[in-house]
C-alpha cells in the first residue's frame, strides 16, 4: 500500500497540493475579515483617545490620575533626578499602582534619572516626614503629590 502511495500519480500529488491550498483559503476566508475588523476597531479606539491618553499609554492602568504624570513631566526639569516614594495603598489606586508605579515612572520620565537622593520626590501616599524640608509643588487626589527637596 505504501509503495502504491509513494508511486502515486500526478493526480494524487496535485490533490494534496490543492487540499493544502483549499484549507488555507478556507481559513483565510474566516480569518481575514476578522483580522481586518479587529485592526479597524483598534484604529478607531486609538483615534478616540485624547493626546494625553496616548502619551501616557499603559500609565493609565498604573496610576489613578494621569495628571500626576503630566505634572511630573512639566515640573521636573529634564536634567534633574527624582525618587519615588510609595506608602499604604489608597482606595482609588489600581491593582498595579503600588507595584508598577516606580518602574513606570522610571521609564516615562526619562531623561530624568531615578536616584534615591534625587531632588524631586514623586509621592504616592508617602510619609512626607521622611523628606524634611521638601515642599509640595503639586497635590492631587488619592495621596498623589510631587515634592521638591531643598
Amino acid at each position: 500500500m505504501l509503495q502504491r502511495w509513494f508511486s502515486a500519480g500526478i493526480a494524487t500529488r496535485r490533490l494534496v497540493v490543492v487540499f493544502c491550498v483549499a484549507v488555507s483559503v478556507v481559513a483565510l476566508v474566516v480569518r481575514y475579515p476578522a483580522a481586518l475588523r479587529d485592526a479597524n476597531d483598534t484604529a478607531r479606539e486609538n483615534a478616540a483617545l485624547d493626546f494625553v491618553d496616548r502619551a501616557v499609554g499603559a500609565g493609565n492602568s498604573v496610576f489613578p490620575d494621569q495628571q500626576l504624570l503630566v505634572e511630573a513631566r512639566g515640573l521636573i526639569p529634564a536634567d534633574a533626578s527624582f525618587t519615588v516614594a510609595i506608602g499604604e495603598p489608597q482606595p482609588g489606586w489600581t491593582p498595579l499602582t503600588a507595584t508598577s508605579a516606580e518602574p513606570f515612572l522610571r521609564s516615562f520620565l526619562l531623561p530624568r534619572r531615578l536616584e534615591p537622593e534625587g531632588g524631586w520626590v514623586v509621592c504616592l501616599a508617602c510619609d512626607r516626614a521622611a523628606y524634611p524640608g521638601a515642599a509640595a509643588v503639586w497635590e492631587g487626589d488619592d495621596g498623589l503629590s510631587i515634592l521638591q527637596r531643598e
Binding site: L36, N40, T42, A43, N46
Partner: peptide, 11 residues
C-alpha cells in the same frame, strides 16, 4: 488598516 492603528497607538 494597520497603518491607521499604528499612527495613533499608545505605548
Amino acid at each position: 488598516v494597520l497603518f491607521r492603528a499604528a499612527r495613533l497607538q499608545g505605548l
